[in-house]
Design a protein around this nucleic acid. Structure first.
Lengths: 351, 351
DNA sequence: ATGAAAAGCTTGAACGATTAAGTGCAGAGA
DNA sequence: TCTCTGCACTTAATCGTTCAAGCTTTTCAT
C-alpha cells in the first residue's frame, strides 16, 4: 500500500551519496565505518522504509541463509499431528529461534522431488526418522557440504541422535513382568518391512531389517521376556502401521474383543499413542485397568501423563533431542552421535 | 564427500558447449528448446551431479521462492505443542506440499527482529492469532507486496479466516443449560488485557479490547445465559493465560477444591485443553463427571474425542482453516474473509 | 523461387546484495 | 619535514540464475 516497490540498498546508498559498501557495512559490520555515518544510514533507511538487506540476495552472495531445514519422514500433515514429532520440532525451534535462525519444513515423503529443489537454500539439515529413502539422503549429501544430523535413524557417517531404545524397553518390560501375566501381547509400531496392520508372526519380527529403532525396542522386550523365561512363541504380536488413533483403533479393538481367555492381560506397546488407544478402547469395553489389563507405552508424551489413569511408559525427551540436533547443526556443539537416556514412568496403567 | 563444490548451471553449459539460457530452459521451459538438446542437458546434468538451478539464485532472480511463511503469535516452541496450532499447520502444509511449496516457520514473539530479516524470502504470509503486535504486521506489509492472510484475528483489510465463535459458544452453552445447573463457572482463555491466571471479575470481562475471538466466545456464553435468565453476576469467571496443562492446572485445582456448596457444577471452558485439564483433575478428586460436574470445551481436538469420557465441545476445523489460508495465499482461491462454521459435539462430559 | 513466420539457440543485462582490495587522508613518530 | 600507520570509505568483481531481445536457420504457404 505504501511504496510501490521495496527500496534497495543501492538506491539507499545513492540517496545518501555513499557507496553501497558503506550501507552494507552499516547493517552488517558496524566496526567498518564511523558511528556518525552508520547513524545517518540507519536513519535514512528508517525514513525510506528500508528494512535491511534482502534475504534472497544476501543468501546468494554469502551462501548462508540462516535457514535450517527439517526433513520429516512422513508427510508434514501427519508429522505435525504427531506428538513426538511436534516435541522434536519444538526443541529444534527453541534453539534455532534463540540463535536467529528459522525453520523450514520439508517432507521426505509427499513430494520427494521438492526437497532437492528447495533444499539448496538451507544451511543444514535435520533429518528425522527417514527410513529407507536413501535417495533423498544422497540428494542432500550432494547439495553442497551442508551439515546433516539424523534423528532416530542412522545415516551413513553423519552424526545421529538416538535414545537407548533397547535398554528402555528392557526396563519397562522388566517392570511389567514383576507382576505375573498370563497372556502377554506386544503391539509393535512399523516393525515389518511390508505394510501390515494387524497380527504378525514372530518370523516377521525377526527379520533384521526395516526400521531399526522399533527392532531395538522389540529386542529390549525380548530380552526381558527371555530373562523371565517366557517363551517368545507364547507372546502374541501385532503391528501398527501409523501412529494415529484411527489406524491403531481397529487393531486394538480386535485384540480387546478376543474372548476372555485369549485376550492378553499385559500389553506392551511401542508408543504412547498405541497404549492410549488401548486404554480408551478398554475403558469403553468395561475392561478394568490395571486389574484386567495392564498397558505400557513408549515416548512419555504429555497426553499420557495429564490424564487419568496415568500411562505407565518410558519417557524419551524428544524436545531435548531436537535441541541437541539443532545445536549440532548450528555448530554450537561438536557433531557426534548421541544416545540419550530415557526414564521409566511408573504410571497407573501398569503399576 | 563426492564433488568438492556444487557445480553450477554455467559450468554445465560450458561443459556442453551451449548457452546458459538453454540449460536454464531445459529445466524451466521445455518448450523453448529441442527435445534432443533438452535430453542432452538433462543427461549431462545427471552425469555431473547437477541437481537443478540453485534455489537462492533462482529466487533472487525471479522474486519467488516457493516458500510460504507462517507467523505464529506465540513462540514456536509453544505453538508446536499446541494441538490447535498443529492442526492448522497441518492443513497449511497439506496444501503447500501438494503445490510444491514449502513452509517456513516464524515466531512473532520470540525474536521479533528476526521476522523482517528472514521474511523477505517468503512469497506470502499466513499470520496466526497475532494479537497486538501490529509492529510486526506493518513490517510484513512493507516487505513488498506479498499476500497476507490472517487466521483467528483481524488484520487491517487483509483477508481473515475465523470460525463462528459467538454462535458456537451460544450453541454449546444453550445445550449445557438444558440441564439445570446450580452454580455455573466460565473458564476463559487469554481474555484479559493484562496477564491474569485465576479468578476475574466481570468488570474485566466486559472491557471490549484484547483478544477478540475470546471476547466473541464469551459473548456467546452470555447470550445463552441471558436467554435462560441467568444473572451474569452469579456466574463465576476465571482466566487462563496459556493453553497448556501446566498453566491450566493450578487454576482448575483452585476451582475444584472449592467447598462443595461453592464449587460449580457446570464449567464452560474456552478450550479443550482447559476442559481436559478439568476432567483430569476432577477424576483425581473423585468428582464424578457428569453427575457432579459437567464440563464443556472448545476446539474439538482429537485428544478430547479419543478418550473416555468423550469431551462435550464445539469442533472447529483448524485443519480446514489451514487449508483455506494456504489456498488463498497460493491464489488458488479468491482472497476474501471467511467465517467457518463449527459443529457441536455432544460428548459425555456434558450430555 | 520467395518472403514471412516459426523454431532453436545465444547474448547480455539484470536480480540485490557482500567483500577483498584499493584509495586518500589525518595524525604519530622519527 | 617525511614516512608510516590506521581509519574511513570506495571500487569493482562476484554469487547463480532468468529472461527479453536478437540472431540464424529452417519451414511453409504462395
Amino acid at each position: 500500500m505504501s511504496s510501490p516497490r521495496r527500496i534497495t540498498l543501492k538506491e539507499l546508498a545513492a540517496q545518501l551519496g555513499v557507496s553501497t559498501a558503506s550501507v552494507s557495512n552499516a547493517f552488517n559490520r558496524p566496526d567498518q565505518l564511523s558511528p556518525a555515518l552508520r547513524e545517518r544510514v540507519l536513519e535514512e533507511a528508517r525514513r525510506l522504509g528500508y528494512r535491511g538487506p534482502d534475504a534472497k540476495a544476501r543468501s546468494l552472495r554469502t551462501g548462508r541463509s540462516r535457514i535450517i531445514a527439517v526433513v520429516l519422514a512422513e508427510t508434514l500433515t501427519y508429522s505435525l499431528k504427531d506428538a513426538v514429532a511436534s516435541e522434536l520440532l519444538s526443541g529444534i525451534a527453541e534453539v534455532l529461534d534463540a540463535h536467529g535462525h528459522t525453520l523450514l519444513l520439508l517432507s521426505g515423503r509427499q513430494n520427494a522431488s521438492q526437497v532437492p529443489g528447495s533444499s539448496s537454500i538451507a544451511d543444514g539439515f535435520i533429518v528425522y526418522g527417514l527410513m529407507a529413502s536413501m535417495a533423498l539422503v544422497e540428494e542432500l549429501q550432494s547439495a553442497g557440504h551442508k551439515p546433516i544430523v539424523a534423528v532416530d535413524f542412522d545415516l551413513g557417517d553423519h552424526p545421529a541422535i538416538h535414545v537407548d531404545d533397547e535398554p528402555a524397553c528392557y526396563a519397562i518390560a522388566q517392570h511389567a513382568l514383576q507382576t505375573p501375566a498370563s497372556r502377554i501381547g506386544i503391539v509393535n509400531l512399523r516393525l515389518t518391512d511390508t505394510p501390515c496392520n494387524g497380527p504378525i508372526t514372530d518370523a516377521h519380527a525377526l527379520i533384521p531389517t526395516g526400521q531399526t529403532i522399533t527392532r531395538s525396542r522389540l529386542a529390549g522386550f525380548h530380552r526381558a521376556l527371555t530373562e523371565r523365561e517366557v517363551a517368545l512363541e507364547d507372546v502374541a504380536m501385532w503391528n501398527i502401521e501409523e501412529n494415529t488413533y484411527e489406524v491403531c483403533a481397529p487393531v486394538l479393538a480386535e485384540i480387546l474383543d478376543l474372548p476372555a481367555g485369549e485376550r492378553p492381560d499385559l500389553l506392551l506397546c511401542m508408543s504412547d499413542r498405541i497404549a492410549l488407544t488401548a486404554v480408551t478402547l478398554a475403558e469403553q469395553r468395561g475392561i478394568r485397568i490395571p486389574e484386567d489389563l495392564r498397558i505400557t507405552g513408549f515416548d512419555g508424551i504429555e497426553e499420557g501423563q495429564y490424564r487419568s489413569p496415568r500411562l505407565t511408559t518410558v519417557h524419551q525427551d524428544s524436545t531435548e533431542k531436537g535441541r541437541l540436533a539443532a545445536r549440532m547443526i548450528l555448530g554450537l556443539e561438536p557433531a557426534s552421535s548421541h544416545r540419550l537416556s530415557t526414564q521409566l514412568i511408573q504410571g497407573e496403567t501398569c503399576p
